[in-house]
């Protein structure tokens, strides 16, 4: 939105990519890179491990990671979901509840905000959110159905999720209830995994079906205010995906693998304006592009740190 308008760098020719040295055709060379899933395996391991740890902590009274994704205790330290906290603060403006809130709450909220300020973007989504895990599979199914021409894609404006972000805060303020939390699939699913299933599974099922047959990643992309909070926080975060224009052959397979392709706008031929670009706040730091890029043009980076080391 606030990108500086510059003239794009001249696109690099494919002939300079590494395949030339290997005497391979560009297309064949790219195909050799399609099967690596290092980061995806790591990511799914972390996601499943943490969500199972929640469940195990409850089942066996382990006191490792108690609570759920809306509020938890990691080895005794509180962690609070910021969007939940914002809603609570907003309502508190009206009801003078604010002074009652415990220090643990403030500490938990600050810890989480600081963590995502550093680790950036929608990292939470792809590394921790159980709904994201379901939606990732839904996305694959959706893509398959699109390819078979069974369904049509429906795209909306990405900006509307900020309308939802503000809207749910306002509706919380008006009604003095956590309206959003009664159908927030992130918290719902987390609690279902920990405390057992409930009627609300029907709602999750409807959402996923909608994402499969109508619009790709509808909830995550256009609605989820929890994720939008991370997008806002992650705009300035140092942990990011670095893109080096020199190494890019513009094959765009990263664009196909990306969960938030609009953040990889610079990989399109003739769009990149700098030698180095960083993916923005919407990027989930999932590492799909890092895994797949044949020229290693995309890598994880921690801004500032790579200069020191």
């Amino acid at each position: 939105m606030f990108r500086k308008i510059k003239d794009p760098l001249p696109a690099k020719s494919r002939e300079e990519m590494p395949h030339a040295k290997l005497n391979m055709k560009y297309k064949d060379w790219i195909n050799t890179h399609k099967k690596r899933h290092t980061w995806r395996i790591r990511r799914w391991t972390v996601l499943l491990f943490l969500n199972i740890l929640f469940t195990l902590s409850f089942m066996f009274d382990l006191a490792l990671l108690e609570g759920s994704l809306s509020g938890s205790r990691l080895l005794g330290f509180y962690l609070i979901d910021p969007y939940m906290a914002f809603q609570l603060f907003f309502i508190s403006l009206k009801t003078d509840y604010l002074p009652h809130i415990t220090m643990n709450f403030i500490i938990g909220l600050t810890t989480v905000l600081l963590f995502y300020l550093l680790m950036g973007g929608r990292t939470f989504c792809s590394w921790l959110c159980p709904y994201h895990f379901l939606a990732e599979w839904a996305e694959k199914l959706h893509n398959y159905l699109i390819k078979k021409k069974k369904i049509k894609e429906h795209v909306f404006q990405l900006g509307i999720r900020y309308v939802f972000w503000v809207g749910f805060l306002i509706i919380a303020f008006i009604t003095e209830r956590l309206i959003f939390e009664t159908f927030n699939p992130v918290g719902m699913l987390s609690r279902i995994l920990i405390y057992g299933p409930g009627l609300i599974l029907i709602w999750i099922f409807i959402l996923i079906t909608f994402e499969i047959v109508y619009s790709k990643r509808f909830w995550c992309r256009y609605v989820c205010p929890v994720g939008s909070t991370w997008s806002l926080v992650g705009k300035i975060s140092p942990m990011a995906i670095k893109f080096e224009t020199d190494k890019c052959g513009h094959c765009r397979i990263c664009h196909d693998a990306c969960l938030t392709p609009h953040e990889l706008w610079f990989v399109t031929k003739g769009k990149a304006t700098d030698k180095i670009h960083h993916a923005g706040g919407d990027c989930t730091r999932c590492g799909n592009c890092v895994d797949i890029c044949p020229g290693n043009a995309l890598t994880y980076t921690f801004k500032g740190l790579d200069k020191i080391i």
Partner: peptide
């Protein structure tokens, strides 16, 4: 006040030694 102050984290449920506390369903 409880209806908005409770953030549905479930910590009270986990800490109860005789599991008296439950989560309300839809």
């Amino acid at each position: 006040d409880f209806l908005y102050a409770c953030i549905k984290c479930g910590l009270c449920i986990q800490i109860c030694p005789i599991h008296a506390i439950k989560l309300a369903d839809a």
